[in-house]
Design a protein around this nucleic acid. Sequence first.
DNA 1: ACGAGCCTTG
Length: 385
Amino acid sequence: MSSSLCRRLQGLFTAAKNTATATTSLPKPSKPTTTTTDKTLTALVEKFKESSNSSRFRSRNHKSYESTVRRLAAAQKFSDVEHIIEHQKNYTDITSEGFVVRLIGLYGKAGMVDHAHKLFDEMPQLNCERTVMSFNALLSACVNSREFDKMGELLSEVGEKYSIKPDRVSCNTVIKAFCEMGSLDSAYSVIDEMEKNGLEPDLITFNTLLDGFYRNERFSEAEKVWALMKDKNVVPNVISYNPKLRALVVDNRISEAIELIEDMGSKGVNPDAYSFNALIKGFCDGGNLEEAKKWYDEMEKNDCKPLQGTFTLLGSLACEKGDFDFALELCKKAINQRCRVNLLMMQLVVDGLVKESKMEEAKELVELGKSNGYFRYKLEIPSNV
DNA sequence: ACGAGCCTTG
């Protein structure tokens, strides 16, 4: 019975491959996107290995694992990623499934799905229990590495080779994969397969589908998802609504987006920073700084911390419109919030302030940037004025 | 501790 679900999901993969629009296929970066030197990275690897000697570090600093692996992968230092992760086998934590699940996930984020698979295969030798949770981590690694064929292969062998039974999380991950492949019909039909196997879709199932449909501006199919949610008494949250907000904005239906945000409030779903950012993006794309500012204020009134993208959107438009006082306010706020600011934009703001003879403000911004270590490069007051 | 978003950038 469990193998039948696998077979059916795998069948959907075969169908999806033939119908996939394949517009979203994104190659792994072909060249390093960082200027960090090899020396710095080697030091990073050594420092990381040393840190991971501490059991406290291993159990609580997953963020450090992620950022280290992300930096190494961005620099294409895959052998270093392997080195760091294999090193973790020296610790007894390796017998804990949760720990290995995290490592499998790290391989996935580095785009190293074959390494993830190998680690999964090694679990019994490592004296580590292997349940569907590890299998799900491996499926997720396939999604993060965009290795969709590999996911189909795994589904075909999970029943016989591993005697693991896929669960609701497995299905949600398969849905996510179909959405990323642009095979939305397959994504939706996974729900039927779930139900045939006694697995009820949950909020994450529906949110994944809503995002998939709205990204492709398939409004009417998304409505079917909302209806099904209602039918199943699954209560939407803010993550359900945000993809619709973004899609309405992309579709130039900004007044409907505003209505929706008001509608959310009345349904007791508080809009968050992503919600407001969607509207701000709409107005910024249309060059309407006044309305964009209004929604930025609204964002603050609702205690939402602006996103990095919010600062970039508003800051660029403010510079374009010559509103350097507002641009300065944004830069200060972003730095205080420890958000990375676009360096080019910072320079535009400094230049603009100088042009308006606001030298004190310009200097203040340069200093603020320097003292926060964000701008080790060449943020400068122009000398030719 | 496996599954849902903004953008990706030093």
